[in-house]
Design a protein around this nucleic acid. Structure first.
Lengths: 147, 147
DNA sequence: TAAATTATATCAGTTATTTATATAAATGTC
DNA sequence: GACATTTATATAAATAACTGATATAATTTA
């Protein structure tokens, strides 16, 4: 088991460092719709899964219940989300993203893709191919991370 | 030029989506030293490059001058950074990370690497190899993004 | 030398977060 | 079914974190 662990450990550290650096860059790329980290994160999560309960958002976003309640109230005020009582549980609230909220995420994503595209153009064809080859594995890694 | 653009565009969109998902997961992995996004980002930036001027941090972190000044004052209060006048410019302040501040970043990184390692173990050897093969290209992409 | 620009501190207000408290709905126990 | 416990969320008070505005001093430019 040990040789396998050593190989994995070496790849992981390098991978993590590269990923860290790319994250640092990509996360700041969009110049539009600059909202707070948690706001963008909530909208992003809701764009993937909607509606969600407050309690679910508290778990995914790792903030306190109070913070999430107040943030969602503000987002509702600004038209980015809407809140409805959960018909299956009288205590709960369902939060869904509005088209306006979705547009925030979509427009930022579009700009980021455009800018990453420009960087990609400056890679060699071999480099681009190696990234494309790793894409299924990266996608799989994300799936594992969501389990 | 067009066929090349189309190929690049296809890869970029898929890559961006996969990256987005991985970012969402990785950024929340560490369970220790949970500080605010900008706080962690400032410490991370200072761990790569130290010392930096306030004005440089304002640019890299994309917050207002006032926000950065106040944040750095709080970080200094908490022992995570230290401030010194810049000997080459009487108006400027140099900010450097303290060992305590560096420990925040290092310990979170260590935990993240450990957890990514666990996910990696669940990939096939082929999947791991494809990611390792793409690593130089990803690293290069990061360099391009820092230009 | 004076004007313009740059660098940063501070203030006042809003947003964003925490802890604490409260209320009601749902679930568990007997 | 009654009561205890847990769950879900709203609200209050305080601090952190952000913005725009203002101020001061150092540096650069004309």
């Amino acid at each position: 088991m040990e040789p396998k662990t050593n190989i994995t450990e070496l790849n992981v550290s390098d991978f993590a460092m590269a990923f860290e650096e790319l994250t640092r860059i990509f996360i700041r790329m969009p110049s539009i719709e600059k909202l707070s980290f948690t706001t963008l994160s909530v909208l992003h999560t809701l764009s993937l899964r909607s509606p969600m309960r407050l309690s679910e958002l508290i778990a995914t976003e790792q903030v306190t219940q109070s913070a999430m309640t107040q943030l969602v109230i503000r987002l509702e005020r600004d038209g980015l989300v809407e809140r409805r009582p959960d018909p299956s549980d009288g205590r709960a609230v369902l939060v869904r993203i509005t088209p306006q909220g979705a547009k925030v995420i979509d427009s930022r994503r579009t700009e980021r893709i455009m800018q990453i595209g420009k960087l990609m153009e400056r890679l060699t064809p071999e480099e681009r191919t190696s990234i494309a080859s790793a894409l299924p594995a990266l996608t799989r890694l994300a799936e594992l991370g969501n389990d």
